[in-house]
């Protein structure tokens, strides 16, 4: 059986990769991907803690499933917004999106 620390290490790496991507990437699509990465690392944590520490309960699994569903819906909306922005500005770089600034 794999030790809990290894799995948590993976999820921590995913989380920091997501944060790094979120802060540094210019493309809005990449920023969205980074957010998904962070969400997934959180999901992994839920599942792992449930499996390893409280094997009798199922709350962690359900929470993870719930978060995945929410994330799917949210990314669908985000992509729809991005498509609209692209149609309007022919560009989806975060630093170029200044249309609604003051």
């Amino acid at each position: 059986m794999i030790q809990i620390e290894y799995i948590l290490l993976i999820s921590a790496v995913m989380m920091f990769a997501g944060i790094f991507g979120f802060l540094t990437r210019r493309s809005t699509l990449a920023v969205l991907l980074s957010i998904e990465l962070m969400l997934n690392s959180a999901d992994i944590n839920f599942a792992v803690f449930n499996r390893m520490l409280y094997p009798d309960g199922h709350e962690g699994y359900f929470f993870a499933l719930f978060a995945i569903a929410i994330a799917a819906a949210e990314s669908a909306i985000a992509i729809a917004i991005m498509i609209n922005i692209y149609r309007m500005l022919k560009n989806i770089s975060v630093d170029k999106l200044q249309k609604m600034k003051w």
Partner: peptide
């Protein structure tokens, strides 16, 4: 301060 850049806010 209100630059509108989400990444700066996140930082």
């Amino acid at each position: 301060l209100q630059s509108g850049s989400v990444q700066k806010y996140a930082f």
